[in-house]
C-alpha cells in the first residue's frame, strides 16, 4: 500500500505543476516580444481569484453546461493515474491503458463541445465545430503513434512502453521514434489549441477553438475549465517528454527531476513556436493533422519492417 502512495506522487506533481507550464509559455513569449511578462505563477493567482468569485450563467443553458467542467476535470485527473513518469510506472497500469487514456480525454472533449452548444451562441458553435473537426483527425494520429511505440517495445501499456524504451530502442528504431515524436508534438499543439492550430490569446476574434467554447463560463466553473486545460497540457506533454527522455535510461527520483525539467523545456519550446509562427489558416490545419497521421503511419511501417 505504501508503494501505491509513493507511486501517486507523480500525479500530485502534475496536479501542482501543470499551471506553471502556462506561466513558462507566457514568459517565453514575453521575452521574445521584449516585454517583462506576467509572473510565472500568474495562472495560480488566476485560479485562486476565480474560485473566490460568484457565477453568471446564460439563461439558455441547462445542467449540461454546469456538468461539463466537472466531468472534464474528473476525466483528465483520471487519466493522470495512467501516466508514467520517466522510468517510473504509473499508479495504475494495464494492457491497453493507452486506449483508455485517449478515450477518456475524448469524453472530456465531448462535454466541452456540448456545453459550448448549450449556450446557443453562434460564436461558440463555430469553436465547437472546429474542435470536433480537428480532434477527429488528431485521434488516429495519436492512436497510430502509440501503437507504433507499442510495436517497437513489445509492451501494451503506457508504463510498459515507456519503461521498456531504452538507448537500444533508439539505436534500433531511432528514425521511427523521431517520427512518432513529431506526430505527437503536432497532436499536442492541436489538442491544447496552441499556435499554429489555434491562438489561445485572442479572446474576441473569430479565430479560435478552445477559448471560444468556454466564453460563457465564469467564476469557479471557469477555474475548473482552465485548470483542466492546464492538466491536459501536462498529460499530453508528458507523452512527448517520456519519449524524448527515454534514451537517457533514467529512473527513480533522478527520472522525476529530469522529467520536470523536460516539461519546462517543452513549455519553452511551445513558447518559441508561438512567438515565431503565425496561426495558420483553418483550411490548412487539417493538412497538418493529416501529416501527423502520415508520420505515425510511416513510423509504424518502419518499426514493423525493420525491427520485427
Amino acid at each position: 500500500m505504501n508503494t501505491f502512495f509513493v507511486s501517486l506522487l507523480p500525479v500530485l506533481l502534475g496536479l501542482v505543476l501543470a499551471p506553471l507550464l502556462l506561466g513558462v509559455i507566457h514568459r517565453t513569449k514575453a521575452v521574445f516580444a521584449g516585454r517583462h511578462g506576467s509572473p510565472l505563477l500568474q495562472a495560480y493567482s488566476d485560479l485562486a481569484k476565480l474560485l473566490r468569485k460568484g457565477a453568471v450563467y446564460s439563461r439558455t443553458t441547462t445542467w449540461v453546461f454546469r456538468a461539463a467542467p466537472v466531468i472534464g476535470l474528473a476525466s483528465v485527473v483520471s487519466v493522470m493515474v495512467l501516466l508514467p513518469i520517466t522510468g517510473n510506472s504509473a499508479p495504475l497500469s494495464f494492457v491497453g491503458d493507452l486506449i483508455v487514456f485517449i478515450y477518456v480525454l475524448g469524453l472530456m472533449r465531448f462535454f466541452t463541445v456540448v456545453a459550448a452548444l448549450d449556450t446557443g451562441s453562434s460564436f461558440e458553435g463555430m469553436g465547437a465545430s472546429r474542435e470536433v473537426h480537428f480532434s477527429a483527425l488528431a485521434e488516429p494520429a495519436i492512436v497510430v503513434g502509440l501503437v507504433a511505440l507499442a510495436s517497437a517495445t513489445g509492451f501494451l501499456s503506457l508504463s510498459g512502453i515507456f519503461s521498456a524504451m531504452s538507448p537500444t530502442t533508439w539505436v534500433v528504431a531511432g528514425p521511427a521514434l523521431a517520427l512518432v515524436l513529431a506526430a505527437l508534438f503536432i497532436v499536442f499543439l492541436a489538442e491544447n489549441s496552441r499556435i499554429p492550430i489555434d491562438d489561445p490569446n485572442t479572446h474576441l476574434e473569430l479565430t479560435m477553438i478552445h477559448e471560444v467554447m468556454i466564453l460563457d463560463y465564469s467564476g469557479p466553473d471557469l477555474a475548473l475549465v482552465l485548470y483542466a486545460a492546464a492538466l491536459k497540457l501536462w498529460v499530453l506533454g508528458a507523452l512527448i517528454v517520456n519519449v524524448a527522455l527515454s534514451p537517457l535510461g533514467l529512473n527513480g527520483i533522478r527520472g522525476v527531476g529530469l522529467f520536470v525539467a523536460g516539461m519546462l523545456v517543452l513549455a519553452v519550446i511551445v513558447g518559441c513556436v508561438e512567438s515565431m509562427m503565425a496561426r495558420s489558416s483553418f483550411l490548412k490545419v487539417p493538412r497538418l493533422l493529416v501529416t501527423a497521421i502520415a508520420l505515425s503511419g510511416i513510423a509504424f511501417m518502419l518499426i514493423v519492417r525493420f525491427t520485427a
Binding site: 460568484g54 457565477a55 453568471v56 450563467y57 446564460s58 439563461r59 451562441s121 460563457d216
Partner: peptide, 12 residues
C-alpha cells in the same frame, strides 16, 4: 453563499 445570476448568452 455567493451571487449566482442568469443573464443572456454573451454574444460579443
Amino acid at each position: 453563499a455567493r451571487s449566482v445570476t442568469r443573464e443572456p448568452t454573451w454574444d460579443c
